[in-house]
Computed example of a mutant assay.
Amino acid sequence: MSHTIANKEKLLLRVKKIKGQLSSLEKALEDEKECFKILQQISAARGAIHSLMSEVLDGHIKEHLGNHVSEDDREKEILNLASLLKTYLR
């Protein structure tokens, strides 16, 4: 079973919290809140997304790069992961 399926409810709860943070950010912008408050909202949302990425990435590495994976599959997964990380870190 895929790690995202096994942790589906937990991951969906995190996504819902991120949606709430983004809605709060949108409201702060609409209400013309002070820039420091807006920066705090952006920072919180970014941190939450980063944390979600870290959790899914950890499960992905364990599932797709573990000792149980064939050498050919591992090489493909490493290339895929390197490509993903390049786009994520831009």
Rank of each mutant, 00 (worst) to 15 (best):
N67D: 13
A48T: 08
L22H: 03
S51D: 14
N67A: 14
V56P: 06
K17L: 08
Q40P: 00
L84M: 05
L12F: 06
T87I: 07
L22E: 03
D73E: 14
S43H: 11
Q40T: 13
F36H: 13
L11Y: 15
H64P: 00
K33D: 07
L11P: 06
G59Y: 03
V69I: 15
V56A: 09
E75L: 10
L11Q: 09
F36G: 08
L11M: 10
S43G: 13
Q41T: 06
L22I: 11
Q40C: 11
S2I: 04
I5Y: 12
K19D: 14
L84Y: 03
D58Y: 14
E77A: 09
S54H: 07
K16Q: 15
L89F: 13
K17E: 13
R74N: 05
E9D: 15
A6P: 01
V15I: 12
S23H: 11
D58W: 08
E77C: 01
R74G: 02
S23G: 04
I61R: 04
S43Y: 05
D72S: 08
M1E: 04
L39N: 13
L11C: 05
T87V: 11
I5L: 15
N7S: 10
K8L: 12
S2E: 11
R46E: 15
E75K: 14
L84E: 04
I61G: 00
K76E: 02
I18R: 06
K16H: 14
R74W: 01
Q41H: 15
K19E: 15
S43N: 15
H50A: 15
Q41N: 14
L39M: 14
E77R: 04
E30K: 12
S2C: 11
K37T: 13
E34W: 00
Q21W: 04
A82D: 09
C35N: 04
H68F: 00
H64R: 07
I38D: 00
H68P: 01
G47D: 08
D58G: 14
M53P: 00
S23V: 08
R46I: 07
H68I: 00
L25G: 07
N80Q: 11
L57N: 07
K37R: 08
K17W: 01
I18N: 08
K37D: 15
G66K: 01
K37E: 15
E55I: 10
S70E: 01
Q41L: 14
E32H: 12
K27C: 01
F36W: 10
V69D: 07
G59T: 07
N7R: 04
S51M: 03
D73T: 04
H60L: 05
Q21A: 03
R90Y: 10
K17Y: 06
V69C: 09
D72A: 11
I5C: 10
D72L: 06
E34D: 13
I5Q: 13
K86W: 05
K86F: 08
L13I: 05
V15C: 01
M1G: 09
G47V: 05
L52Y: 06
L65M: 15
K33T: 01
E34N: 10
